[in-house]
Design a binder for these strands. Structure first.
Lengths: 329, 329
DNA sequence: ATGCTGCCTGAGAGCGCTCTCACGGGGAGG
DNA sequence: CCTCCCCGTGAGAGCGCTCTCAGGCAGCAT
């Protein structure tokens, strides 16, 4: 069993030619029924599995696609649960298409180079880039080399590549609108980094609602981490001690904000209402449970894969976001 | 740029033979210095990248390894944060070795078959199986086909395959010992599933300490999910309303237990002390912050990869666990 | 000067597969 | 009864690379 049988062996055993075995194995039509059965039996008896490299060499296909994280891995796997959904979604679609998923981290310059070399070597048929930093040069760089690329999140630079994005603006609008409906008057925000599309769009949504309702913006900046949220909340309380609501651009930051509010003796939602963004698992278990904006991460992964696999250029796909009301508002 | 240059082209441009270019590209010694430089220049000018399939076909190596999750994906990516650390650790080592990581889900029977076919096709040089269910047949099945396999977690069946495991027993012993030191007398446990090594070992550790201190065990079973923890805690309170501590075999279950205790009006830690297991991110942010047992998941990933890559048979690697004391005890 | 050792380079044989093309034979049409 | 066509099968040429082997040319000893 150590030495794997080749097409040749199977052909010999079935008493046919290599070509015929190949046809059977690849499910080609026009093979006589009894020959087909004989070949199948030989395949079975020998435990034949086509050699991937040989096939790939001639077909020029690799039947696998790469999912590249252009971020430090620590962020991908612990801080940002969005990625988990994406991986699952991509994985689902890719497996349904009987292809394989190669996971790559390209957090560094060396990483970028590795990804380029690897993909150019014909290892994969296409690449999904899950990058949050909109100005990432990697997608274009791969595209120029002729490799099919799909991006998660609208590229800030608007490079014309196909992408799938969440409707971040709408999510923010829903969240802030909800705060308004609850009768809140001084609504602040903790925004995400201005070099990430999610940060930008969520802030824009917030601004839009406040502007439309004739209120002024109260803004602090974070970087999507919990600590930055705690810090930003402290600053916000200093800037405007009378604020009665805050729209936080990520749940992790909202957790930090919740903590700061608790330390400051503000009750949530009585004194200050809090809305997060992402609807990560633990948002349901905070004290109080967090009102937040849910985004279809699983579906995002699936759409990304679908876009890549079908080469269907009905690109930008923008997925809806949905407000989940809990007890923090 | 669409059509990639071959070795032949590079050879022609550099005015040497294919063999020489191959030698240079693969960093073989014994190539004249000026020829080497000339070849390198040609490679650079043409943007040559070796075709992976062709190389793999002759070398019989794929320079990539598979990380197989023999679990439903939902569990891998949301419920069990252990996996995230493993992925990161494996990824680090694998990339350091300039190889690639292929991620596979084998949650179903079809999945198993897919993994077998894929790995047998020579797609990968080895497989890491991250399965929690100890009696999983997949590892042996692959090993029989001659594919190098490493398991995460000691296989229940003791099949002789190399593995890396956490020291679950010691973790449980530390946790329960800590409860004892705190003066707790009626210590219950919420155990994990009896078909997972982590469930078994953690329960054994608990039993061991209680037996040594002449106390009786109070046991409820969960399946590592939050809801099962909540349910088990309810049962425990019924069984022994006077219990003053509970060792929960996973943080997720501990979250559920915490909720049940809150609803039942028991204060933590005043009335009931709670220790979890895993030290997942949000354990720090519960109310109160959870005392728990930390396990080196990142390192586990790295050891898994190392074991596979070096073919170093100093197998069972057992990694230490560490009690993290917070405010729930 | 001749032979030998050793180092570098080139030629060429595959690795296992797919796919085109040619061929043989049977059925339909003339 | 002969011809044409088409379907099913086999032969063979590569895909791009690695690696063995042999050959050539120094440099050294005889």
């Amino acid at each position: 069993m150590t030495v794997r049988p080749t097409l040749e062996k199977v052909a010999a055993r079935a008493g046919v030619s290599r070509a015929t075995v190949s046809r059977v194995v690849n499910g080609s039509a026009s093979v006589g029924e009894e020959i087909r059965v004989a070949v199948l039996r030989a395949v079975d008896e020998l435990g034949y599995v086509p050699n991937f490299a040989a096939r790939s060499l001639v077909t020029q296909r690799a039947d696998s696609i790469a999912l590249v994280f252009s971020e430090p891995p620590v962020r991908v796997f612990s801080e940002d649960p969005t990625f988990a959904g994406i991986i699952r979604g991509v994985s689902q679609e890719v497996e349904a298409a009987d292809k394989q998923l190669v996971l790559m981290m390209a957090g560094s310059a060396r990483g970028h180079e590795r990804v380029e070399r690897y993909t150019t070597a014909g290892h994969v048929d296409g690449v999904i880039i899950a990058s949050m930093h909109g100005a990432d040069p990697l997608p274009m760089s791969l595209a120029r080399r002729g490799i099919p690329v799909v991006c998660s999140g609208r590229p800030i630079t608007g490079n014309g590549l196909p992408y799938v994005d969440m409707d971040n603006v709408s999510g923010a609008v829903q969240a802030v609108g909800h705060l308004l409906e609850r009768g809140r008057r001084r609504i602040a925000t903790i925004a995400g980094p201005p070099d990430m599309i999610a940060g930008i769009d969520r802030l824009n949504g917030y601004r839009q609602v406040l502007r439309d309702s004739g209120r002024r913006s109260i803004i602090a900046l974070g970087d999507f981490t919990r600590d930055s949220g705690a810090l930003a909340m402290r600053q916000l309380l200093e800037d405007d001690p009378a604020l009665d609501a805050v729209f936080v651009a990520s749940d992790m930051m909202a957790f930090g904000a919740l903590q700061t509010l608790r330390l400051a003796g503000r009750r949530v939602p009585d004194d200050v209402a809090v809305v997060g963004f992402d609807d990560i698992l633990s948002a349901e278990y905070t004290e109080p449970p967090l009102t937040t904006v849910r985004q279809p991460t699983l579906r995002m992964g699936r759409e990304l894969a679908r876009l890549l696999l079908t080469r269907n250029p009905e690109s930008p796909v923008v997925l809806p976001t949905e407000l989940v009301i809990r007890e923090s508002t």
